[in-house]
Amino acid sequence: MAAGGDHGSPDSYRSPLASRYASPEMCFVFSDRYKFRTWRQLWLWLAEAEQTLGLPITDEQIQEMKSNLENIDFKMAAEEEKRLRHDVMAHVHTFGHCCPKAAGIIHLGATSCYVGDNTDLIILRNALDLLLPKLARVISRLADFAKERASLPTLGFTHFQPAQLTTVGKRCCLWIQDLCMDLQNLKRVRDDLRFRGVKGTTGTQASFLQLFEGDDHKVEQLDKMVTEKAGFKRAFIITGQTYTRKVDIEVLSVLASLGASVHKICTDIRLLANLKEMEEPFEKQQIGSSAMPYKRNPMRSERCCSLARHLMTLVMDPLQTASVQWFERTLDDSANRRICLAEAFLTADTILNTLQNISEGLVVYPKVIERRIRQELPFMATENIIMAMVKAGGSRQDCHEKIRVLSQQAASVVKQEGGDNDLIERIQVDAYFSPIHSQLDHLLDPSSFTGRASQQVQRFLEEEVYPLLKPYESVMKVKAELCL
Rank of each mutant, 00 (worst) to 15 (best):
D11V: 09
R14P: 13
M26S: 03
M26H: 02
F28C: 07
V29G: 05
V29C: 12
S31R: 05
R33N: 05
W39H: 09
R40C: 03
R40F: 00
Q41Y: 14
W45P: 02
E48A: 06
Q51D: 04
T52S: 13
G54D: 13
L55R: 12
T58Q: 12
T58R: 14
E64K: 09
L69G: 07
K75Y: 12
A78V: 12
E81C: 00
R83W: 10
R85V: 14
F95W: 13
G104M: 15
H107G: 00
G109T: 02
A110Y: 00
G116N: 14
N118H: 07
D120Q: 00
L124W: 14
N126T: 15
A127E: 05
D129E: 11
A143E: 03
F145I: 04
E148T: 10
G156Q: 04
P162H: 08
A163N: 03
V168I: 08
K170E: 00
L174A: 14
I176V: 13
Q177K: 04
D178V: 05
L186T: 13
D191S: 08
F195H: 03
F195D: 01
R196W: 02
G197W: 01
V198H: 04
K199M: 02
T202E: 03
G203V: 01
Q205T: 07
A206V: 07
F208E: 02
F208H: 07
D215H: 11
D216L: 07
L222K: 04
D223E: 11
K224N: 09
K224F: 12
K229A: 07
G231Y: 08
G231V: 05
F232A: 01
A235S: 11
F236H: 13
I237T: 09
Q241I: 00
R245M: 02
V247M: 12
V254G: 11
A256S: 14
S261G: 13
K264D: 05
T267C: 09
L271D: 03
L272G: 09
N274Y: 08
L275N: 09
K276I: 05
M278R: 02
E279C: 09
E280I: 00
I287D: 02
S289H: 01
Y294R: 01
P298W: 01
M299K: 02
R300F: 08
C304G: 14
C305N: 08
S306V: 03
S306P: 02
L314S: 12
V315T: 10
D317K: 03
L319C: 00
L319Y: 10
V324M: 10
A335C: 14
N336F: 02
L341H: 15
E343D: 15
E343L: 03
F345N: 10
F345C: 12
T350L: 12
T354K: 04
L355S: 08
Q356F: 02
N357W: 05
P366F: 02
K367C: 08
I369M: 11
E370Y: 12
E370V: 08
R372I: 06
N384E: 05
I385R: 01
I386E: 04
I386M: 01
M387G: 15
M387Q: 14
A388L: 07
G393P: 04
G394C: 11
C399V: 13
C399T: 15
R404H: 06
L406M: 15
S407N: 04
A410L: 05
K415H: 05
Q416D: 15
E417P: 03
L423R: 02
L423G: 03
I424C: 15
I424P: 11
E425N: 13
S434G: 13
H437I: 12
S438E: 07
L440E: 03
L444K: 05
D445L: 13
G451Y: 02
R452F: 08
Q458N: 11
R459P: 06
R459A: 13
F460D: 01
E462A: 12
E464T: 11
Y466H: 13
L469H: 02
C483D: 15
